[in-house]
Structures are given as structure tokens and as C-alpha cells.
């Protein structure tokens, strides 16, 4: 049962010369199956491993998970789209597939340019100072060294890691988890992305930072980008996204204006 609200936000979407909305991400009936390692769930003794080698069977502790079961939607330029759903509903999986990090087993995902995925555990080099991490992160996003030199101070200001003393010159391993997450977001947000995928990355900051980052997400959208936001904080989805997609058990439940989708989702979550 899929409900569609096709009068979704026209006002904010950027149009091409022909007056048509420009798609940035097209997901066409995507199925994603990935294999998970169950860890030490059994069959991990040396004898069992040898037997597997001899019999040429796959490790028994690998299980296939059909995480996304045929999702289709189109995202346009200038849209901010929230992705909501219970844990394990396939939100993060679909983001990783859009970023090109997971293959689709059936169907296809088309993207404009290279989407960037921003997750909470995007590790940089913990032994290096925040400043050096800024330079490295920017270079890794393909910036020119001159551009990096221009932006570095702004990125550190934005992250607010220097609010309590000079942390930027300390190694990142000395940062609190919130500080590290803020710095990572600031680095990723320094570049103009065609498509930015944010996976719970805004949840870690404090209130002041959350305000700043929500503002930054709006700016990125106005710069003709598309932003996807996965979050369990419905308020943050409500504040930044005008369109929301609700996934449940790998199936698209609802796609439409944020208010309506969140209302339906809340009713569903409360009735469980």
C-alpha cells in the first residue's frame, strides 16, 4: 500500500529552461540484499573453519538480509527530503546505495554528479590535529589546496570546536564524540554538493550547533542541491524537510509533504 502525494513541493524546486523540475536522484524499483556476518554466533572453531575449507561451503555465520524491497522515487533539485521509519527499515541502506557504496541487486539508482554521504562514524585520522583533518578532509572531497587554505578557518569556526579553548590544534582522539561529529559535519558541509546524504549526523551536536547546521542545510538546498536527511528526531525532519519518505521493512509506505507523512507515522508508531 503506497500512497502518493504528487502535489509535493513545487515552489522550492528549481526548474530547467523547459520549465521541468530537474531530477537529481532517480530510484527505480531498487532491491538491496546484503550479507551480514553474525560474528561468533557459531561455527567459528578452527575445526569448523577447516571443514568449511574442505567442503567449500560458505561460512554459516553469513546471512542474507533483504533490506530494501523495491523502492521507487524521484528527488529533484532544491528539495530536502526526510527519511523516517523504525530501526532496520532500510533508511541507511538506501542512502548508502544512492552514494554508490552498496550495489542494487535489482532495479537501478541514477544520480546526478556524485552524492556525498555524511554519517556519524565517518572517521578521519584520530592521531592528527583538527586543523590537519580539515585540510585532509577538504582535499579528499576534491578541493584545490588554495581553496582549502581559504576555507579552513571558516570550517573550524562553524564547527565551534574552539569555543572552549584551542582544540583545533589538538589531536582528534582528544575530542568528545559530539565535537568530532561537529567537525566532520562542518568539513562535509564546506563544499557544494549536488546531492548530500545526511545519516543521523545532526543528532550529535548541541542545540546551538544544530541550529547552525540546519541553517547550513537550507543554504545547501538553495544552492540547487538535494539533501536527504535520515533522522529519528522528527522535529529536525520537520524543520529542514518539506518532503518526507517513510520506509517500513524495506518497503516505501508513504511519500509526501512532511506534515502528513509524520502524522501518519506517529499514528502508526503509537498504535504498535
Amino acid at each position: 500500500m503506497v500512497e502518493h502525494f504528487e502535489d509535493s513541493p513545487q515552489a522550492t524546486a528549481t526548474l530547467d529552461p523547459a520549465g521541468e523540475r530537474i531530477p537529481t536522484v532517480v530510484v527505480d524499483d531498487a532491491h538491496i540484499i546484503y550479507r551480514v556476518h553474525q560474528g561468533a554466533a557459531g561455527g567459528t572453531t578452527p575445526v569448523a573453519a577447516l571443514r568449511r575449507l574442505v567442503k567449500r561451503t560458505n561460512a554459516p555465520n553469513v546471512r542474507e538480509v533483504h533490506a530494501v524491497k523495491g523502492i521507487s522515487f524521484t528527488a529533484y533539485r532544491g528539495e530536502a527530503i526526510g527519511l523516517i521509519g523504525s530501526n532496520g527499515s532500510g533508511k541507511s541502506t538506501i542512502l548508502r546505495a544512492i552514494a554508490g557504496l552498496l550495489p542494487v541487486n535489482r532495479g537501478a539508482i541514477y544520480t546526478q554528479g556524485q552524492p556525498s554521504l555524511l554519517g556519524v562514524n565517518a572517521a578521519l585520522l584520530n592521531d592528527l590535529s583538527g586543523e590537519r583533518n580539515v585540510v585532509l578532509g577538504c582535499l579528499a572531497m576534491g578541493m584545490h589546496p588554495d581553496e582549502v587554505a581559504q576555507q579552513a578557518a571558516g570550517i573550524i569556526d562553524f564547527s565551534g570546536i574552539n569555543e572552549r579553548g584551542d582544540f583545533a590544534s589538538l589531536p582528534m582522539r582528544t575530542y568528545s564524540s559530539g565535537m568530532a561529529a561537529r567537525l566532520r559535519f562542518s568539513i562535509a558541509a564546506a563544499k557544494r554538493h549536488d546531492v548530500l546524504l545526511i545519516d543521523e549526523a545532526l543528532a550529535t551536536g548541541d542545540k546551538g550547533f544544530r541550529k547552525r547546521s540546519e541553517q547550513r542545510v537550507r543554504e545547501l538546498r538553495e544552492g540547487a542541491g538535494t539533501v536527504f536527511l535520515v533522522s529519528h528526531q522528527l522535529s529536525s525532519v520537520r524543520d529542514t524537510c518539506e518532503r518526507t519518505i517513510w520506509l517500513e521493512s524495506g518497503v516505501l509506505r508513504m511519500d509526501g509533504p512532511t506534515d502528513e507523512v509524520i502524522r501518519a507515522y506517529e499514528a502508526y508508531a503509537n498504535s504498535k
Binding site: E6, D16, E20, R21, I22, P23, T24, V25, V26, V27, D28, D29, S72, T74, A97, I98, A99, G100, L101, L102, P103, A108, I109, Y110, T111, Q112, P115
Partner: peptide, 20 residues
């Protein structure tokens, strides 16, 4: 709904590439 194209046609028309 606007153009009556399938997803694949829509992607091709705007020069979108397969992810990854």
C-alpha cells in the same frame, strides 16, 4: 506524473548516471 516517462527514461533524459 509530469512527463509520463519511466524512471529510467527520466534519468536518461536529464543525463543522470548509475550510482557507483
Amino acid at each position: 506524473p509530469e512527463t509520463g516517462l519511466t524512471q529510467a527514461q527520466l534519468a536518461a533524459r536529464h543525463g543522470l548516471r548509475v550510482a557507483g
